[in-house]
Every structure is written in structure tokens, then in C-alpha cells.
Design a protein around this nucleic acid. Structure first.
Lengths: 123, 123, 123, 123
DNA sequence: GTGGTCTAGACCACC
DNA sequence: GTGGTCTAGACCACG
């Protein structure tokens, strides 16, 4: 359902948050759908449940989940819009990385090359 | 000479490293030129001297500086080529940020848009 | 007959317990009256029957119900006095919430204001 | 500096958050002041550093702190207003507890009595 | 020194 | 079964 790169400098809980937002943005998860269970997802990702719980808690604070006691989390009805907001964050994080690449003198040609490469890999 | 963004998530020492590499890549610093002084640069950037020292140490380990007896550090003759490469480091950091942006559902169109925008601004 | 706020941080079974106590305190339920059925109440509140059962069990342990052979539960004769007390439980929960409000800097004036408001609304 | 009630049903990290907001609301902490260190406060409260860290992280996400890398947290310039916003939360949490007390039939007289008592205790 | 991340495992509350 | 809280302790990154 979700894949995590343990070697990435991006914190695991941030990868999880992004992945869930991405699934909503792409329509794979819809408002009202149950979110995966904390323990289940943790087992699947081979990650400590606390780490998943943190991601979920933060998504909950953003209003991305609606959690009813003892019944797990559901995707909030406003999640699609939240996902779009999330894109704003993703956008600015990405913009920051472009700035840093340019500081270092990485030429536009190399940047575009990398993007072409990633896009190809993704399928 | 150099500008640092204290609010950025990118570590200051990384911004400094990138900026120096960038200055070489753009020809503002040339092989044989004296490297800026740690203290002077720290004062100018209003940054902890340890931070500048760290950046310099790491650049030194890469062979970016040459030290001649009694004359302090100078930009190495090989610095230009090293810098131009974008040095793998910048490359892989940028690649990682592309992955994270994609996890979060940022579409390729938005990514390319951002790059077009940044490129236009810079020119 | 009873209303439950599913969005409240107060556990549902606590809301049910409080509501029954409140109905007795206000004379809407009298000693000797039959207690509502667990299933019926659960259906009416759209709540898990286990949750209602828990509320009833705990009220039973307090001596709130009397069970006569073969007649099911009835409101105990002592229920009225127990309820009127506010039952320590409600008292201490409320006291705790006053403390937390004060920790957060909510001034006495705002607290009293809120109470005046709630009282006015209810009347 | 801060006091915590380990026996309270209110989570420790919430007590810490409320306490800091309260100190700002009362002017004991001002924008620009350094926040206590995570480890130091944890030791003082005899609490696990993670618990304090969580409180601080959440306050940070609210924009209550400005954290500069390696230099600890400072009270954000907007903290006073945030503290007022925080009062909104405290207010609604308190209102909820009034509702619950009333559900249970706790009479207004008892409520007012409790408040008078708490106020007296506080000095 | 600072804060941040992650793991491990215990315990509780709710439904 | 679910999520939430807390503790303990390791390790890393930053300045």
C-alpha cells in the first residue's frame, strides 16, 4: 500500500504523511474511507508503531483524519482540500531544494536531466 | 559576497559549502585566489565561527582548497571541475527532494512549472 | 430521551452515565421506574451496545439500579440522593477542568462569564 | 517555574503546553525570551524528555516558538496572540466540562461553590 | 550544549 | 480490536 525508504534523510513519519496525502490527492483514498490501522501499517512498513502514530497524529491535527474513539481513523471529508494545501508545503519544500541546488552551481541542464530520469523510473 | 538564509531547513554549513562551490563554478572565485577568512566570513554572515569552520573543513577534505606553507588556504586548481559537476552531493540531495515531492502527490507539471519560474527569476 | 455528542472528548459511556443520573436528579426518572433496555438505548443513540452495557454495569455497581427477581432492572430508591450529590465523580472531573483552564491562563472572569452564559442558555 | 500534576487525567504534555501558554498570557514569558531547554525542564519536572519534547514540538507547530537550529527555542513574536487563541481552546474545553457536569445534574450551586473554592486555594 | 528521530515495550481507555 | 500516553535509552545533526 505504501512504501518507505529507510535510507532517506527525510524522516519516516514525514514520508508516511506525504504518502497518505498523495494517496488522497490521487484519489486512491477517499473521504470516509478508513485509514490503515496504526499497528497494521507499522508492521507492514517494519517500523515502530510510535512512528506511524506520530504521522497519524499530525495528520489528525491538520484535520486530515476524523478519529472516532475506538473505531480507528477515517479520511476526513475535507481531506481532498487539505491534500491540496499539503501540496503547498510540498511545493515550497521543493522550491527550497531548487534554491540549494542552484547555490551549489548545479546547472539547469543537470536539474532537468535528473527530473527526466526520475520521471522515467517512475514508469 | 555570500548570502545565507537562516530560516531555511538547509543547514547553514551546507549553504556555505554550496555557495563557495557556486562562486567557483560561476568564476567569481578562481583557482589560486585566497580563500576568505573563517572569522571574517563568520562575522559577515552573522554566524557561529564553528559553523564556517565546519564548512571549510569539509571543503578542504574534498580537495577544494590548497594550502601552501605559510600562505593560508587558496582555491585549488581542481576546484573548478569539482564544482562544475554539482558534486554528486547536490545531485543526490535534489533527487531525494524530487522523490519526496512525488510521494506527496505533487504532479510533474507543478514541478516543471516551479523550475521554469525559478529559472526565469534568476536570469 | 437522551442525547449524546459523538464529537465530544467525554467518553460516550460517561455521557450516558451522566445523562441517566441527570434524569433522575431532575425527576424525569423516578425510583421504581424500569431502566431503559440496553439494546433499545443503544439503537436509539446509534452507539455500540457494549458501550451502553458498560455504563449500566458501572451504574449498577454504584447501587443506582435495583434488580428484582425476574423483573429486570429498576431505578433504585436511593438513586435520587446519589444523583443529587453530583457524585464526587462529576465534582472532581469538573474541579480538574478548572485547574487545567487556569494553567492555560484563562482568567476567572472568563470562567465566570462562560458559566453565566451556559446558565442563561439552559434556563 | 512550572508545576505538573502527575495524577491528573490531563496528559502531561497538555499540562506543559497550557502552562507555557499561561506564562505568556500572564506576561511571565515574553516574545524573544528563550524557552526552557527540553532536557532541563524534563529534569525539573521529573518527566521523560520525550514528553517535554512533544509539548514543545506541538507548540512549535502552532507557531508559538521560533526555533533556530542548535540554539534552542525562543518565544515567537506572535506568541501573545497565539496565547489568546489558546484561550479559545481552553475556553471550549472548559465549556465542554460544564456541559458534562450539567448532564450529570451537578447543580449550579455546586459548580459555583467549586469555583469559589479553587479561587480561594489559588490565593 | 541544543533539539530531532527512532526503537522498544508497558499500560490505559475506548468501543 | 482500536488509538493514546509515557518511559527508557540510543543515535544523529546542528552550532
Amino acid at each position: 500500500m505504501i512504501e518507505i525508504d529507510a535510507g532517506s534523510p527525510v524522516p519516516i513519519y514525514d514520508q508516511i504523511k506525504a504518502a497518505l496525502r498523495g494517496q488522497v490527492a490521487r484519489g486512491m483514498l477517499r473521504p470516509g474511507d478508513p485509514a490503515p490501522s496504526v499497528r497494521g501499517l507499522a508492521a507492514h512498513l517494519r517500523v515502530n508503531p510510535n512512528t506511524v502514530a506520530r504521522a497519524f497524529r499530525e495528520l489528525g491535527q491538520e484535520g486530515f483524519f476524523e478519529s472516532r474513539r475506538g473505531e480507528g481513523n477515517r479520511i476526513a471529508s475535507s481531506a481532498r482540500e487539505r491534500a491540496k494545501d499539503g501540496l503547498g508545503e510540498a511545493r515550497s519544500a521543493f522550491a527550497e531544494s531548487v534554491r540549494q541546488a542552484r547555490r551549489g552551481g548545479l546547472p539547469w541542464s543537470a536539474i532537468l536531466e535528473l527530473i527526466r530520469g526520475a520521471r522515467g523510473e517512475e514508469k
